[in-house]
Amino acid sequence: MEWIQIIIAGLSGTILMTLFSHICGAVFNEEFSEPTLLNRMMRNSRMFSSEITDNDSRGWIIHFGIGQLMGFWLWFMFCYSGLGQAPVIGSLLGFLAGMAGVLGWLFLFNTHSNPPETDLKGYIVQLVIAHTIFGWSVYLLFQHWNPCWVQL
């Protein structure tokens, strides 16, 4: 049952983060959706089919897959880091994950031969906030469920 809780927490955090990105994109009339930007990166690349649409499943699978990896990382930090188990710690770890995400996206945008158009500075700011929301929400669920069953 604990694995399911970790997966649900990762999915929930990714959903909230993605919803925040969609709202920010709508408010600022920019494309901030991570799956859409991933799909556009692939579509504009010679390595992938030009038939990849903005809503292609590949961008969503990559985005949610990374969210699950981050969820497992947060579970490890929640249970074994000694940092504490308050949601504010999750927010701080989410912020750090956001900084790592920023580095990854900057790498993608700067090395891609034809990156998708978006307000990169605005995207980076909302990305850090979105990851902070991710970390907070995952930690909140972990605090509720306390899925620390494995002894390392």
Rank of each mutant, 00 (worst) to 15 (best):
residue 136 W to P: 01
residue 103 L to D: 05
residue 107 F to L: 06
residue 148 C to T: 00
residue 55 N to E: 12
residue 141 L to S: 11
residue 106 L to D: 09
residue 75 W to D: 06
residue 10 G to H: 05
residue 82 G to P: 02
residue 138 V to P: 03
residue 111 T to P: 00
residue 13 G to H: 03
residue 124 I to E: 06
residue 137 S to N: 08
residue 82 G to Q: 09
residue 43 R to I: 07
residue 93 L to H: 10
residue 74 L to H: 09
residue 47 M to H: 11
residue 56 D to E: 04
residue 6 I to P: 06
residue 128 V to A: 12
residue 55 N to L: 10
residue 49 S to N: 12
residue 76 F to H: 10
residue 104 G to Y: 13
residue 49 S to C: 09
residue 13 G to M: 04
residue 21 S to H: 11
residue 36 T to N: 04
residue 76 F to A: 13
residue 131 H to C: 08
residue 7 I to P: 04
residue 49 S to I: 03
residue 35 P to E: 03
residue 20 F to Q: 07
residue 72 F to S: 04
residue 150 V to Q: 10
residue 75 W to L: 09
residue 8 I to H: 02
residue 1 M to L: 13
residue 15 I to W: 09
residue 111 T to N: 07
residue 20 F to H: 04
residue 59 G to Q: 01
residue 1 M to R: 13
residue 116 P to H: 01
residue 21 S to Y: 09
residue 105 W to G: 00
residue 93 L to E: 11
residue 101 G to I: 02
residue 53 T to I: 07
residue 50 S to W: 07
residue 94 G to T: 02
residue 77 M to Y: 08
residue 126 Q to Y: 14
residue 57 S to F: 15
residue 24 C to V: 09
residue 96 L to M: 14
residue 6 I to Q: 10
residue 79 C to D: 07
residue 149 W to T: 14
residue 87 P to I: 06
residue 39 N to S: 03
residue 50 S to K: 15
residue 129 I to K: 05
residue 148 C to Y: 06
residue 43 R to Y: 03
residue 100 A to F: 14
residue 90 G to P: 00
residue 103 L to G: 15
residue 38 L to A: 05
residue 63 H to C: 06
residue 71 G to Q: 10
residue 146 N to Y: 09
residue 58 R to S: 15
residue 65 G to H: 06
residue 22 H to M: 15
residue 39 N to A: 01
residue 85 Q to M: 10
residue 19 L to T: 13
residue 46 R to D: 14
residue 63 H to Q: 03
residue 7 I to H: 04
residue 125 V to Q: 08
residue 136 W to V: 11
residue 110 N to C: 03
